[in-house]
Design a protein around this nucleic acid. Sequence first.
DNA 1: CATAAAACCTAACGTAACGAGAGATGCAAG
DNA 2: CTTGCATCTCTCGTTACGTTAGGTTTTATG
Lengths: 257, 257
Amino acid sequence: MAANYSIGQFSKKTSTTIRTLRYYDEIGILKPAFITESGRRYYSDNDLIKLQKIVSLKYLGYSLEKITEFIHMNDWNLKESLSFQRKEMLQKKLHIEKVIRALDHALHIMDDDGEVDSSIFISLILNIQMESEHKKWLKGFIEEKKVDAMYDIPEEKQLELNKKAITIYSDLKNLYGHDPESNQVQEVIKGYMEIVQEIIGDDFKLVQELYDMGNESESQIDTHNLFHSPFTPEEEEWVTKAMDIYLRKKGVIVDGK
Amino acid sequence: MAANYSIGQFSKKTSTTIRTLRYYDEIGILKPAFITESGRRYYSDNDLIKLQKIVSLKYLGYSLEKITEFIHMNDWNLKESLSFQRKEMLQKKLHIEKVIRALDHALHIMDDDGEVDSSIFISLILNIQMESEHKKWLKGFIEEKKVDAMYDIPEEKQLELNKKAITIYSDLKNLYGHDPESNQVQEVIKGYMEIVQEIIGDDFKLVQELYDMGNESESQIDTHNLFHSPFTPEEEEWVTKAMDIYLRKKGVIVDGK
DNA sequence: CATAAAACCTAACGTAACGAGAGATGCAAG
DNA sequence: CTTGCATCTCTCGTTACGTTAGGTTTTATG
């Protein structure tokens, strides 16, 4: 029970700040072996081991509250707890990986032209963020296999396609107001449809299905909360018109207004 | 500039809590388009876009403070900032991966026997945590190539070796007090040395070097802060004695005390 | 032994991004 | 006119300490 170390010495020995040691004393997770009448703290070798335990568990991501529980209960189910913690950490890892992917996409589209329209940037990020929700939603309408195929594209290709799409969004925004039937506009739309086809393949029926889904009045509310558009409502109406014309010419749309 | 949405409506539309919206108003990152005399907040479509921008940037890991800066400066270098953020996130990812590895090791050694000695557990975690520091330290003494080779072991094998080592630590702790020269003790030490050899190869010179390094008085301080031992000082003295006897018999140590 | 310097003490505020509650007010419908 | 819902403004709580500020105790030195 030798209380050998003053707080300063203990602090150096353990690479823990004095403040931290006092805090641990305060919350009762590590009380020094001995306190003098004047209030000075002295720590023992036993405290050293206790602190190491705390540090280890902290490293594994536990909160001080949990650790306090662990230390005071002596029959804690370590294995189960570790296994739970592992799952939590895997979750966190997945999240970070998604964020990194979003950053990669954002950086990639800025490679040459440092400037991107703000709303395009936003929709890029928001859509990457919602990707898994998109998949789920689509699977409610389309065969699971087809949906998986749509998303099973090598990362590099995705970066490229996304970049092309962004350029087209930008072009469309610049062309807003022009006649939707003009060659200029129709050319850009054609470029867009080429990208769509690279993603979903040459399956024209699928193109049509997707198109219908986006326009069904009941799903409108869903789609607009789920898929973020880079366009303003006015722009979007105009783009839809241009797309309509394009698809009609291609014979994908036959009926209806 | 139509201020169309009450805070409740805006909250639902954006899946943001009312509290958050009020907070954003308070810190000035998103002030509603219009506030009535009685203090009610009304948001516009423009605010919608602003909020989406905030949400996007938050998703990328930026703090509200940074975001506020971004929004108020209109010439922020987005690209550089994103690139910096990416690095930060990669760091975080690396950290989490290390934690997961530590959890894996901890779980693996508990696969059969749910119980592990507390100090062994601690040293396992602390040593995994310090792994990169260990490598650096070793490279100050041993050829870089050799050090890299020591650590370049498939994860599965590492789990196995670690588990074996833990069992041996446990055995040694149980045998503490017995004659270090006894067959029983020497057998366990032999098992330990087999593990060591699996890691560093059949290079007896290297074994000797490592052994010397651990015992050189000047490096003692370093080693004890860097490598965490699962043994108490008394236990460790005893283990060292047993190891000494073993290595002397094997002819690895010749001279000295 | 006196004094200065070093080490230590408590107390209290600050952090980030809200969540949760208390208690007061506004506003539209019956 | 009252009921009831929406909204308002405080204010405290959260995590794990960092950071002063201002006072006391120990230790080193002349």
